[in-house]
């Protein structure tokens, strides 16, 4: 009996500690989420009037919409371009500037600069830099007699350009996390490798990578989650154009909700996105766990 009371007491302290955060998140995240989930089963207008229960019709509407599938395809394209590029660049850079020196600190500081600016600012600035008419990049290419593409206005190049913006903006963030992980790798491991006569490549693949694998897993998962929700850079630069080639799911959701005011389909497609992210993340965690066991 006494033990039970003690356990409750202990539990109570725990609950008290998390109460404020949980209250905030319940009220401002969970309740809105539940509201959205529920309302996805209804048809209604932006004045929140004329609620009519329609079951899964909103989901059918979305799944029948070519534009949704197109936006899913674009989102996957973005994730597949952005995540590997960002991770590879940041791993390489982190390893290259891991040694403590004044120069490396300068590099680190510089690479992190875009991270602290807002996506809006970075995206607008880069778009203007590549602008066909006033941008310095096309102007220089023209000067050197090279072919020039109006990248944000070209169906083939618009998405790569958006990926470029995203990598530019966030590789520094990933790099910092990996740098932190690298600092935790004991020096003795490298010394042992050197004694064994391992080359640079061998050290990198046999020592460095495995030691920071958990951190890599962490950044891979978070950047996949983030990439699936890509919006700001698209909204600021192309709004989904040209020819819907850069319309990502969140941009689609935004358009449905605020441009064409089809609230039901907007919420339904957002929920579909949530489910997709959930599945991908769980799959990732599983793969991550398996590979961890193999070490």
């Amino acid at each position: 009996m006494k033990w039970k009371a003690l356990a409750w007491n202990k539990s109570a302290v725990g609950y008290l500690f998390i109460l404020p955060s949980v209250a905030v998140m319940t009220l401002f995240v969970i309740v809105p989420l539940l509201f959205s989930l529920l309302s996805s089963l209804y048809s209604f207008d932006i004045m929140l009037q004329n609620f009519k229960f329609i079951g899964l019709d909103n989901f059918h509407t979305v799944l029948d919409d070519d534009r949704f599938w197109n936006s899913l395809k674009n989102t996957v394209y973005f994730v597949c371009g952005n995540v590997p590029l960002q991770i590879v660049i940041s791993i390489l850079v982190a390893v290259a500037i891991n040694k403590k020196s004044r120069l490396n600190i300068v590099f680190r500081t510089v690479y992190f600069l875009p991270v602290v600016c807002s996506m809006t600012i970075v995206a607008m600035a880069i778009q203007m830099m590549f602008d066909f008419n006033i941008g310095i990049v096309p102007a220089l290419l023209r000067e050197w007699g090279l072919p020039v593409v109006d990248v944000f206005n070209d169906p083939t190049w618009a998405m790569p350009a958006i990926i470029l913006i995203s990598v530019y903006k966030s590789f520094g963030f990933t790099m910092i996390i990996l740098l932190a992980a690298l600092q935790g790798v004991p020096e003795s491991l490298y010394e042992a490798a050197e004694i064994d006569g391992a080359g640079r490549a061998a050290t990198f693949f046999r020592i460095t990578l495995p030691s920071i694998a958990p951190s890599i897993a962490f950044v891979v998962i978070t950047s996949i989650i983030g990439s699936f929700q890509v919006f700001d850079q698209v909204y600021v630069t192309t709004k989904g154009g040209p020819m819907f080639k850069t319309e990502t799911i969140v941009q689609y959701v935004y358009d449905k909700a605020f441009v064409t005011n089809e609230m039901g389909p907007a919420i339904a497609s957002a929920i579909l996105l949530f489910i997709i992210i959930l599945i991908v993340t769980l799959a990732n965690l599983r793969i991550g766990r398996k590979s961890e066991q193999n070490f």
């Binding site: 955060s21 949980v22 998140m25 401002f28 995240v29 969970i30 309740v31 809105p32 989420l33 509201f35 959205s36 989650i225 929700q229 919006f231 969140v250 959701v253 935004y254 909700a257 609230m263 907007a266 919420i267 957002a270 929920i271 996105l273 949530f274 992210i277 959930l278 993340t281």
Partner: peptide, 15 residues
């Protein structure tokens, strides 16, 4: 709590 990271803001925006 971790799951809430996966909710796109647009889902909860209007509520």
């Amino acid at each position: 709590i971790l799951c809430t990271m996966m909710i796109p803001f647009q889902v909860t925006m209007t509520p």
